Amino acid sequence: MRFASLGSGSKGNATLVQAGETTLMIDCGFSLRETTRRMQRLGLSPDQLQGVLVTHEHGDHCAGVARLSAKYQIPVYLTHGTAATGRVDGAHRLHCFNADDELVIGDVRVQTVTVPHDAAEPCQFRLSANGRSLGILTDLGCITPHVVGHYRDCHSLLLEFNHDLDMLLAGEYPPQLKRRVGGDWGHLNNTQAAALLRQLECTEQLNNLVVAHISEKNNSRESAELALASVLDSLEPVVWADQVDGFDWLQV
Rank of each mutant, 00 (worst) to 15 (best):
H117R: 08
A91Q: 06
E21K: 14
T15D: 12
G182L: 01
S31P: 00
V54C: 07
A193T: 05
D60R: 04
D100P: 00
G51W: 05
L137I: 13
R2I: 10
G149H: 12
H163V: 04
S128R: 07
A91W: 01
G186P: 07
N208A: 04
Q251A: 13
R109N: 11
V104E: 08
L228Y: 02
L250I: 11
V210W: 08
V115R: 09
T112G: 07
R67M: 15
I143M: 06
V231K: 10
H58P: 00
L44P: 02
L200W: 01
L157D: 01
A129Y: 00
V113Q: 13
A4N: 06
E57I: 00
C62V: 13
L169M: 15
V231T: 11
A224T: 11
C96D: 03
W240H: 07
P145L: 12
V54P: 03
Q251P: 02
A195F: 02
V54L: 09
V52D: 03
L78C: 12
D27I: 01
F3V: 14
S45D: 13
P75D: 00
W185V: 15
H163P: 01
G186S: 05
S223Y: 06
R152M: 11
R93G: 05
D100M: 10
E204N: 14
L250H: 01
A193Q: 00
